[in-house]
Design a protein around this nucleic acid. Structure first.
Length: 577
RNA sequence: GCCCCCGUAGCUCAGUCGGAUAGAGCAUCGGUUUCCUAAACCGAGGGUCGCAAGUUCGAGUCUUGCCGGGGGCGCCA
């Protein structure tokens, strides 16, 4: 309906330009629902935009526009000039009734669209290396990536969720060494380093302690999970692994167990990846070498100080970057470029990389790399999110993966549950810092919790249904709802808000901003709860069967939108709370 | 020093393509319940949209500078 009105207005405005001999295309004209209800159902700035080009006053143009629009084939009830030259349009009453009818007929599909046209998009997120449990920071990225993927699915894209990981390299060696050290300590063959030495990088590091060697790496992983993995190995192997290198069985065992934990955590917050992509696959397939050769052929690579450099400064970037160290080992950048070329090879039209703020200025280098290889860098989108800071008792809790002072998703879930977790992780837009109050999170009394109130609005529609059943009233089918019976302003306002849902989904999907869904659902809740509550004006279950069916229809429409919205957020939509 | 993000009500944050009187939740204060679930609703107070210029019919929104907070500027990933 908005589309119909919009095209009508755009066409009329274009006609006015054409008649004035101006053949340039029309730009900047909007048709939107105004904030104030008194400003009509829709408002357009067309008259003000055309002022210069038609060399007439906005109000004069507005008057012409209104005259030309007329009733717009029955779409328009009336139109008025307002303020500096807005044209406010009120739709004919029946239009809103049609909207409700469409929502009811669409049911669970309302809000979905095919604008993605089944094009392939990849969303890569989390991508944490298997060195430890997922932290709350990973949680934000996980929920953000998943919700973006859900939005894209709802708008007709063919989505692949992907997790990229690296199980080689220095990090993993340190991990294996850390496990091995704990294993030796548990068998009494080594001494644990003192706590103060672990916590202070400047402190003295003992070679031996009480006659036992200290084998724990100075920069080792300190979390309890390391000791647990070591204990599992000890229980199974006894002293059989005394000669096993950290890089061997210990590293492997740690990776297997940690990855299993990560997957279980992801599963527990409702996330399933389609692809787990191992960086090693790129080496095995010879992709790294091929990319290096191709980059050399592009002339954007040179050798200096024994290392190989990407001439990124030539592509407008800050500085050149090393892609192969003088040791012959590639830096992260080379496999990253190779990985992205591989993504292009899989035919994705759009590639979305969800990453933390600390990766912000690396994106351009990856883009520069793929551009040098002949791909369109604009097909890659980086979606950066700022950090999650945790606070407790008014103080920020310091987090460090290595020192294991971070709060894991698992710990938080035990306190607040998946739905509340997902809600708080997605409520704010990605580029805002997320200050997560642990005390609030651990507070059991969630009666003031906005996550809860969204779910409750959905549950309330079932409460109404149960109440209706008790009175022997069945929920109506779309055919049984005579939408014209809904005439109260608050009912039309609610219908109007529900009708915006597809647009909200579309905008949230194309801007990759799932938080819009949250705020929209809060608005629906904010209209439906008072409507339900104000029993003096409008009980839903009345003596009038037709009116009751219409209001139950409205209730069902609210249910559809709330259910669809909650599903986009990955939250459950309970029937009873 | 350079680059990126943020700065909006007491707190935490929304604010669509630049649009009319800047919103929500929480908190505070006052009220509402023989009722379709009070896990609710109604009302009130609370704003120099960090500061200053600029762009224009119009700026929380765009540009520049400054201030404050966060992140990044490795042959780490």
């Amino acid at each position: 309906m908005r589309e119909r009105l919009e095209s009508l207005i755009l066409q009329t405005a274009a006609d006015l330009l054409a008649e004035a001999g101006d053949s340039e295309p029309l730009a900047g004209v909007t048709v939107e629902a105004p904030r104030q209800q008194e400003h009509g159902d829709f408002a357009t700035n067309a008259a003000m935009v055309l002022t210069k080009r038609l060399r007439k006053s906005p109000r004069e143009i507005a008057a012409t526009l209104i005259e030309r629009l007329g009733t717009g084939d029955g779409l328009i009830d009336r139109a008025e000039i307002a303020g500096p030259g807005f044209v406010n349009v009120w739709l004919a009453g029946g239009q809103w009734h049609d909207v409700l009818d469409r929502i009811l007929r669409a049911g669970a599909d309302f809000g979905r669209s095919d604008e993605g046209k089944d094009r392939k998009v990849q969303v890569e997120f989390v991508s944490a290396n298997p060195t430890g449990p997922l932290s709350v920071g990973h949680g934000r990225q996980a929920i953000l990536g998943d919700c973006v993927a859900r939005l894209l699915e709802a708008t007709g894209w063919s989505v692949v969720r992907e997790y990229y990981f690296n199980n080689g390299g220095r990090q993993m060696r340190v991990l294996g060494d850390s496990v091995r050290a704990r294993y030796l300590e548990q068998l009494g063959k080594a001494a644990a380093p003192p706590l103060d030495a672990l916590q202070d990088a400047e402190a003295d590091w003992p070679e031996t302690l009480d006659g036992l060697p200290v084998v724990f790496p100075r920069d080792g992983y300190q979390g309890d999970y390391i000791g647990e993995i070591a204990a599992a190995i000890r229980d199974r192997e006894g002293e059989g692994w005394l000669e096993e290198p950290g890089e061997g069985g210990f590293r492997q065992e740690a990776e297997t167990r940690i990855f299993a934990d990560i997957r279980r955590t992801l599963d527990s917050i409702g996330i399933a990846f389609d692809v787990y992509f191992n960086e090693n696959g790129l080496y095995d397939a010879g992709e790294i070498d091929r990319v290096l050769d191709d980059l050399r052929a592009s002339g954007l690579v040179y050798d200096e100080d024994g290392a190989t450099w990407l001439r990124a400064s030539e592509l407008g970037l800050g500085r050149d970057r090393v892609i192969v160290k003088s040791s012959g080992e590639p830096t992260y950048l080379l496999p990253d470029i190779a990985y992205h070329r591989e993504k292009f090879g899989r035919g994705f039209e759009t590639i979305i990389d969800v990453q933390g703020a600390d990766h912000k200025d690396q994106g351009p280098y990856v883009k520069a790399g793929v551009q040098a290889l002949g791909h369109d860098p604009d097909q890659i989108e980086f979606l950066f999110h700022e950090f999650v800071t945790l606070s407790s008792d008014g103080h920020t809790v310091k987090q460090s993966t290595r020192k294991a002072t971070f709060i894991t998703i698992d710990e938080l879930l035990a306190d607040i549950g998946v739905d509340v977790f997902r809600y708080f992780m997605i409520e704010r837009r990605a580029q805002s810092h997320l200050d997560f109050d642990l005390d609030l999170a651990k507070e059991k009394d969630w009666t003031r919790n906005p996550a809860y109130s969204l779910q409750y609005t959905h549950a309330r529609t079932f409460g109404i249904e149960r109440q209706a059943e008790e009175r022997g009233v069945a929920m109506p089918t779309p055919e049984e709802v005579d939408t014209t019976r809904l005439a109260l302003p608050e009912e039309l306002e609610l219908v109007k808000k529900l009708g915006e849902f597809p647009e909200v989904v579309s905008r949230a999907a194309s801007s990759r901003e799932p938080h819009h869904i949250v705020y929209y659902l809060r608005e629906v809740t904010g209209l439906f709860n008072p409507y339900y509550q104000d029993k003096d004006r409008h009980e839903i279950l009345t003596e009038d069967e037709g009116l009751t069916r219409a209001r139950l229809g409205l209730t069902l429409a609210v249910r559809s939108v709330m259910a669809a919205g909650l599903r986009l957020l990955g939250m459950t939509a309970p029937e009873r709370m």
